[in-house]
Design a protein around this nucleic acid. Structure first.
Length: 481
RNA sequence: GGCCCCGUCGUCCAGCGGCCUAGGACGCCGGCCUUUCAAGCCGGUAACGCGGGUUCGAAUCCCGUCGGGGCUACCA
């Protein structure tokens, strides 16, 4: 049987990295086993769902390289992949379940429920629904006035036992699971119903999702059985945690995939990093391609303990990808939008080409694409600002005035304005003046780039051009006190 | 509180009864290289939560304990 897997994001927020990781594992498994990967939108919460969030989520998945075979936007044999378009179907299933006695109407009001919950808690009883309306028979229930919800009648007594692909055998006694709502009083389905009906209707064979819904799984299994449908295999993935060991959330920093994109992470790097959270491709490998991951992946190999999301390691990996997995032209192409974002305007081709000379040197110095702008600022901007600390440290030393004057004089004699002649001139300068490279080069660097930290000096000056270089040197000299 | 899940370096993973005086990666520390900063190279730091058992032998199996996390809605 062809494996059919899905990810079912809820468009009540942006694409969370945890959701992305779950999507990734589903995708890997589907690709590994020649299966079908489906993207469905769980938008039963009409109040909080928006199409903007939906778009961002889908965009994020595509950006990460997770393409889907069926689902929203691409369509498929099941037509509708958005739950909001299937409410009739859920109501139909709800009615069928009521008809066969697997579910029942509950007329308890939210106020009554809250009241009884409070009492139960005070008395030390479980706070879940007490099953009051379960004993109403159907004709009796239908004669009752007022609004109602539909609750699933958990088989009692009973136990649900299943074999989770990552955790092994798990069991839940139905005593601790109340008769949960499947249709709200406005007729809309809850997550449990909609998700389960969809999994059944779409023929989902493997449900790989976060461990946070492990406690809901017996409900889904019982619902599936009540529909007389085959059960999928479940795999509950370990949760992503923040540095404090709690479920990853906004207070731990960026959780939205779009933010990572925005600050200049490469999708390849995020893909690689995320796949290492709860899984590994082998004893030694850390960096690997999606293709290699697909070749090796199996849900059964996923670890069962939670993983702390470490932004520092992600950054290291991103640098690794920028340095070693991007050609110079790919790097230039990807970096340009970030440079333009930094400058605040589109860059003229001439300006960008001028920067291209030092781009390979910048490529091995950045961990994020957003760092390119600041590193190239001296080339991209007409006016530079001197980094205060650099100025204080370098330009207030003894003899800087003389160094700059000599540099102006020596450099203006360089006929062939390329890296090697420039280097020759400046090396000649320090030899002549009998000073260290540091003493001789740092003032020039600060004068021209505005900072004591920059791409290598001679190449930078070469890219800068002679006139611009000399102007910067004179400007800086005039600012010495 | 109840139910469920989890427990190897600070972090991510390897380990699936002997190959482990526990391996790799990030981080951190030191060194080399060097025009700054990176990168690179070399070296170092650091863990099987605890207690019982099973076994000739346990990080690996079992039990307990402690610790952490998740769930406990007419959210998903």
């Amino acid at each position: 049987m062809t494996p059919r897997l899905r990810v079912a994001p809820s468009p009540t927020g942006l694409l969370h990295v945890g959701t992305a990781r779950a999507a990734l594992f589903n995708w890997l498994y589907a690709r590994r086993h020649g299966g079908v990967f489906i993207v469905r939108v769980d938008d039963t919460d009409r109040r909080r769902s928006t199409s903007e969030f939906e778009e961002k989520i889908l965009e994020g998945l595509r950006w990460l390289g997770l393409d889907w075979d069926e689902g929203v936007e691409v369509g498929g044999p099941h037509g509708e992949y958005r739950q909001s378009g299937r409410f009739e179907r859920y109501r139909e299933v709800g009615a069928q379940l009521v008809a066969k006695g697997a579910a029942y109407r509950c007329y308890c009001s939210p106020e009554e429920l809250a009241q009884r919950r409070k009492e139960a808690q005070r008395a030390g009883r479980p706070p879940g629904y007490d099953g009051r309306c379960r004993s109403l028979d159907v004709p009796e229930a239908e004669s009752v006035e007022g609004s109602y919800v539909v609750r699933f009648a958990m088989p009692r007594p009973g136990v649900t036992v299943f074999t989770d692909m990552v955790r092994g055998e798990v069991r839940f006694d139905h005593q601790v699971i109340d008769d949960f709502v499947i249709l709200r009083s406005d007729g809309s389905p809850t997550y449990h119903l909609a998700s389960t009906v969809d999994d059944v209707d779409y023929g989902i064979t493997h449900v790989a999702r976060g461990e946070d819904i492990l406690p809901s799984t017996p409900r889904h299994i019982q619902l599936t059985r009540a529909m007389s449908a085959p059960e999928p295999v479940y795999a509950h993935l370990p949760l992503l945690h923040g540095q404090d060991g709690r479920k990853l959330s906004k207070r731990h920093g960026a959780t939205d995939v779009g933010e990572y994109r925005q600050v200049g992470f490469l999708p390849e790097a995020l893909f690689n990093y995320l796949s290492l959270l709860g899984w590994s491709i082998g004893p030694e490998a850390t960096i690997f391609s999606p293709h290699q991951a697909v070749e090796a992946f199996d849900l059964a190999d996923v670890s069962s303990s939670p993983a702390v999301f470490d932004p520092v390691k992600l950054e290291w990996m991103n640098g690794e990808y920028i340095r070693n997995h991007l050609s110079i032209s790919e790097f230039a192409e990807r970096a340009r939008p970030y440079a333009e974002e930094f400058v605040g305007a589109p860059l003229a081709d001439e300006v960008w080409q001028q920067a291209a000379a030092v781009l390979p040197l910048v490529q091995e110095r950045v961990k994020l694409l957003s760092e390119v702008g600041p590193q190239l600022a001296f080339l991209l901007l007409e006016e530079i600002e001197y980094h205060p600390k650099s100025w204080r440290k370098v330009m207030r030393a003894q003899g800087v005035d003389g160094v700059l004057s000599q540099a102006i004089s020596d450099l203006s004699k360089v006929a062939d304005w390329r890296t090697e002649p420039i280097e020759q001139a400046l090396r000649g300068l320090i030899a002549e003046m009998g000073i260290s490279a540091r003493k001789g080069f740092q003032p020039v660097r600060v004068a021209v780039t505005g900072s004591s930290i920059s791409p290598p000096l001679f190449e930078s000056l070469a890219a800068m051009g002679r006139e611009a270089t000399l102007k910067r040197l004179r400007d800086a000299r005039s600012k010495l006190t």
